[in-house]
Design a protein around this nucleic acid. Sequence first.
DNA 1: GGGTGCGCTGAGAGCGGGCTCAGAAGTTGC
DNA 2: GCAACTTCTGAGCCCGCTCTCAGCGCACCC
Lengths: 249, 249
Amino acid sequence: MNTSRPRGPGRPALTRTDGTPIRVLVVDDDPDLAEVLSGALRYEGWEVRTAGDGVSAVAEARDLLPDAVVLDVMLPDTDGFTVLRSLHAVRSDVCVLFLTARDAVEDRIAGITAGGDDYVTKPFSLEEVVARLRGLLRRAGMARQLEDGPRLTVGDLTMDEEAREVTRGGELVELSPTEFELLRLLMHNPRRVLSKAQILDRVWSYDFGGQAHVVELYISYLRKKVDAGRPPMIHTVRGAGYVLKPAAR
Amino acid sequence: MNTSRPRGPGRPALTRTDGTPIRVLVVDDDPDLAEVLSGALRYEGWEVRTAGDGVSAVAEARDLLPDAVVLDVMLPDTDGFTVLRSLHAVRSDVCVLFLTARDAVEDRIAGITAGGDDYVTKPFSLEEVVARLRGLLRRAGMARQLEDGPRLTVGDLTMDEEAREVTRGGELVELSPTEFELLRLLMHNPRRVLSKAQILDRVWSYDFGGQAHVVELYISYLRKKVDAGRPPMIHTVRGAGYVLKPAAR
DNA sequence: GGGTGCGCTGAGAGCGGGCTCAGAAGTTGC
DNA sequence: GCAACTTCTGAGCCCGCTCTCAGCGCACCC
């Protein structure tokens, strides 16, 4: 996996207010999942460490003083709530993103999002995890946006990630959840060719068994809504993937 | 380190008159509850500390000199009223919000609130606790409102939090307590998508075991009263949650 | 210029999220 | 003690979303 990654031109990156990379701690007892996650976060240009249980998580946190923690609720030793308390003791303004099984949502998530923290249910897509973390960090005010705020812009296409609002040339564009996620990925990587495999990896959840064919399908949906009669911004690079770039005048 | 969490767009924040964050001490012997509470208060941008019993509460108070204290009446060592006296000795103008069981309300609480303090009965919703604290601080004159007073406005929708009065386009809208609380949360977060879990966490009491289904139900109630024939302000974002925004022109 | 395969799109099935209605249980006020 | 109101549960329905399948067009290669 490619670990060195200069941000592409136009790639909006978050850094800490002093300009150093954002520090994230990933806590999950499944090493494979932790690896995939930390890969995606490093791809954002962030500094990442991992821990496999609650005790080492707190130990790592004491050392790293992370800005954010990605925390599996089900850990071999302790439950998420206890870890949360310890983390807040280490650094009171830490942001926490919980990972939880879908059916476990109801019972004990209660109160977790109250402190401004957030959660995603397994299985999740990497794009979603990254987006949630970005949102948390931005709201906590510990991050500095290198570009202009929560509104993402490519050409005359804009996306407000918090309001989930997309406009093209001032007109509102209505998107389904998956379409939105796909467009978000494209808009975070303007002028960069993304392969179908990359897109599948980031937009669809990691346990998705389907074909790369869905990517073509959703690109076609997006074109109908985003390009619709206007000069095209979504381009196919045959044999390589897709690019989003401002429409040539 | 940046400990203040700037409110989202349109989110009215309170600070002390010198502009520094409001300082709150949370006293409860249930660590989970204390954690949830302090999370919610930190989310308001306030500085929070916790204590688990009366003795450490007074010790913390001497150190922090809090503007307000959230105080469980039932403590392992002392009762709330003794703590109250000690707190007033530390800082005579401190605001106190009592937490009490429903059936214990009658007798002595009444006398307390005469002193300008307030109470909520368990189980409570976080939105309620935060609202009561805001009211206390404002009345005590130790807080400075960063935005425009107690009246909340989104489009042609207004809410007077103190009078519990809501108008849409000048017309009075009558709401039940829960409906009011839900709308308050939405109006504090205009143009931001709130998930059902977030709403559940803040509007319903922390021990509510029910389904996210009630949120849909109450959204539908609100729509009937707030949107009723007018251009809709409450929007569903499928798979994500709900947003309140000014009606499109 | 013809073949090959990649990419595009239309049709449609299945599913599940979200809305509404009806009613039970609890609460408040007269 | 009754009436009005509020809150929440359950059931059923509808429709939007997702994905599969299949057929076709077009780009590229020889």
